[in-house]
Design a protein around this nucleic acid. Structure first.
Lengths: 324, 324
DNA sequence: TGTACTAGGCCGGATTCTGTCCTCATCGCA
DNA sequence: TGCGATGAGGACAGAATCCGGCCTAGTACA
């Protein structure tokens, strides 16, 4: 236990993050310094922008409260594992607006995650995410974080890519941005061999590898990466339109809808119609629709219709073949 | 920019957590100190147990790597929001073994989450978690974190409770432990009015409020809280048994099963039988089963059979009522 | 071979930190 | 209404630490 000031500040921060009140005396004991020094340390934390609330009088104490900036989170082993598992599960069904930040956070965490915890994370992860099963094309979290790191660190990225017709190629790219359209992940990158910009579906990427080589990012011809991706997807017609009527008010459907699927238009008070586009397989969308516990009708496309019919038939069979 | 050493160390930590290489000179610039001091600071981080890997030679630099302990995570706004949203979504369908730690981490994070970010979290959260819809009884993340804090901080907890027959009461408790059985959350606590131990289903709790009053935890008569909860659930027969046959190998089903549902026994090479107990509503379990994309047969209980039949009928209707 | 980078020792001066002692304000309890 | 426990903060002196500059050594890459 050295008398190192910065180390003590970090320990104080970690103590204060436990959601409870800490009397000054106890903090002084734990940190091995005098009460006065504890007060000074707390002043320092406040100056750093991490407000510490103090209740005076007997039974008083200190407690870290919400401030203007996020203080460094001090996590114990189990909490770190929980966050990693949660983020990896979440990386599958990405929520619009958080997806990319979520992967960044995961990359940051896994960069420093002790190896003994890493094992626990991968073990636990097997038990998660029922929804990924609907559509075979999933992305390994390792792939996601590795590519996110390469984007952030501006390192060249090499990987194997399986194109739509099944042929495999090896690519050397300058990764530009990671994007998700609800269900799928895409990488927008400059392909060095083809000497042009490309978009890659991450579920077709394998063996990604960050060569240490740094690069200075080129300018994307189209304005934003999201715009470029959208154009590229429409060009290849990877997305398809669907059309469904729900026997529920529009606002109810909207509240329970992933958002990136589109927004429903009210037909009358008790029903609404949803026309949108999806880039996932119809089978996955069918399961998704089954989750709504209200009547609905599928109009388009025929593939979706077939999937819903099959799922319905399977469930009916499941209920029919009962044994007394 | 004061020349405060501990503050500089924190900033260095936050810089190093960006997944990229940092040359010493750049770090010195950013921190406003000499190269020599940067080296010393990095030494200090190493002494604190956060190993910094350095690559020598040109193009060299520093980078934080996995060590023995978790370093304090320095998150930017978006990452903090992403983690909060991810954890809140995950708090619904809890994964065995991480559930409680996950709530603890969420409580820790939300305790210090700046209010402007808090708004973004609650906005985004609306768009998540499709599975909670199957079963109306969900728990607000705020309730979860507040109770977790009360357990950790050993503060008395007051809340309104709606018992199974619908009558509402107010309780004053000493919260002991938070548990989840897959789908549902339970609080094991000492009820001060009844002067005895009780278990509470969190989806029946409303208006929880931590009175500042501290208490020293009593000893639970039964050994562990999990054991106590299990006994109490069997006494009330809140859980029910189910029995399903899948037309898929046992290991495949086991891999995609939430784990707490039970483990399947192989019938032959291509099918297996799952007998387990669930405390969720049959409707929710029916949707869950629909997610498996293999044939299956429901044997028990009749309620589940009915739900599966209804769901199948609804999907068939959805596919049937097509418009040309 | 040269260059750019990390690693680390040494030293002197400046800065900061810590513990002690002090006073004052606030709160809860007897 | 007073007492005790707690937080807030000023003053001060001695000790510890920190910082920058200078040095050499080792490594990787062009």
């Amino acid at each position: 236990m050295t008398t190192d000031t910065p180390a003590r500040l970090l320990r104080l921060l970690s103590l204060l993050q436990t959601p409870r009140e800490w009397p000054g005396g106890e903090l002084a004991d734990r940190l091995g310094v005098s009460r006065r020094t504890v007060r000074r340390d707390i002043d320092r934390l406040r100056e750093l922008g991490y407000p510490v609330q103090a209740t005076k009088g007997a039974e008083g104490g200190y407690r870290l409260v919400a401030g203007k900036a996020m203080p460094p989170l001090v996590l114990d082993d189990e909490e770190a594992v929980a966050i990693a598992v949660g983020l990896r599960a979440g990386a599958g069904h990405a929520v619009e607006g958080v997806d990319e930040a979520s992967v960044r956070a995961l990359a940051k965490l896994e960069q420093v995650l002790p190896s003994r915890l890493r094992r626990r994370v991968s073990t636990l992860q097997a038990a998660t995410d029922p929804l990924t099963s609907g559509d075979g094309a999933t992305v390994a979290p390792e792939t996601l974080t590795l590519i996110a790191s390469a984007v952030a660190g501006q390192e060249r990225l090499r990987f194997a890519y399986r194109s739509r017709d099944g042929t495999g190629t090896r690519r050397l790219t300058e990764p530009y941005r990671l994007l998700s359209t609800g269900r799928r992940w895409y990488l927008v990158a400059y392909d060095l061999d083809r000497a042009d910009w490309r978009t890659f579906r991450l579920d077709r990427v394998s063996d990604p590898f960050a060569t240490g080589a740094r690069f200075t990012p080129r300018e994307l011809p189209t304005g934003s990466a999201a715009e470029y991706l959208r154009q590229s997807m429409y060009r290849r017609q990877e997305a398809y339109a669907f059309d469904v009527t729900f026997a529920a008010p529009a606002e109810l459907v909207a509240a329970r809808l992933p958002g990136w699927l589109g927004s429903p238009e009210p037909v009358d008070e008790h029903s609404c119609r949803l026309r949108g586009t999806a880039d996932a397989s119809p089978a996955w969308l069918a399961v998704r629709l089954a989750l709504f516990d209200c009547e609905f009708t599928v109009h388009e496309p025929p593939e979706l219709l077939g999937c819903v019919r099959d799922l319905g038939a399977r469930l009916t069979r499941a209920a029919g073949g009962t044994t007394p």
